[in-house]
Amino acid sequence: MIVLAVLLAVAAACVLGAPRLLRLRGPAVRRPRLLLVAWCTAFLTGAAAIAASVLWSVMLAIAAHAEPLDAGWLAGVLAWSALAVVGAAGALVLTRAEPLRSGREAAIRDLDLLAAACTKRVDRLGAVPVLHIRADRPIAFSSTADGGRIVVSTALADALTAGELRAVLEHERAHLAGRHDVLLRTAALNRMCLPALFGARAFDQAVHLLVELAADDAAARVCGERTLASALRRTAALEANEWAEIRAARLEQRPDASRRRARAGGGLLYKL
């Protein structure tokens, strides 16, 4: 029973604590990647604690020779309730996930159509194919479907210098390498299952924004803050975008990457 109580306490702490961990404050904006890793750890620990406590209560119930109202009987009630809750939660998640799943399938199909009809040429960034598509909208995005692809429109690629384009591509590659799509879908699913009550909307928002900032940091490490900031500014000049301007300002506020590296040591934690 004590083990069960501890497991439940850990689960409750993680479930209630994880979203609070991800508040958008100064530290989150400075260290988006660290925050995301911390959040994932809390989330996985919580999930493991919940699974372990259900298992433990079932084991207690099986091991005990139950007399009404003694500890074994209580464990039996707990075990059955826990299994019922798990079943109900599973059904809820499966039902609510349906639009997400169908949207993703439609997106994969639409991307194939676009790639078939409008691709001008295909480059590679490391192992990732980069599709240049003929389109007037300045846009770049990536999708993990089919092993990962980056798409950039000619309108954007033509407006950027080679260095700036590389920074954009590195930003997208960081999304793919970090499996940010899994985080984004988890947060979206969370919002669909738990309405505003548990701060699910704020949580989705925070994951969305931190993932972008983390990808910016990864791109800046490769191409430099200045280059990425000017890519963001130029993108915003093509199609008004305040979010891009805010991200550019965040990068411009920072000391130059080379000076930071000279200070040394600080990079270690960052590579988590």
Binding site: P99, L111, F141, S143, L156, D181, A188, T235
Partner: peptide, 17 residues
């Protein structure tokens, strides 16, 4: 594509609106 991707949280854009 952008519409269906939005529903499915399927794409990650460089400069999202």
């Amino acid at each position: 594509l952008l519409e269906s991707a939005d529903r499915g949280a399927a794409l990650m854009s460089f400069a999202e609106q």
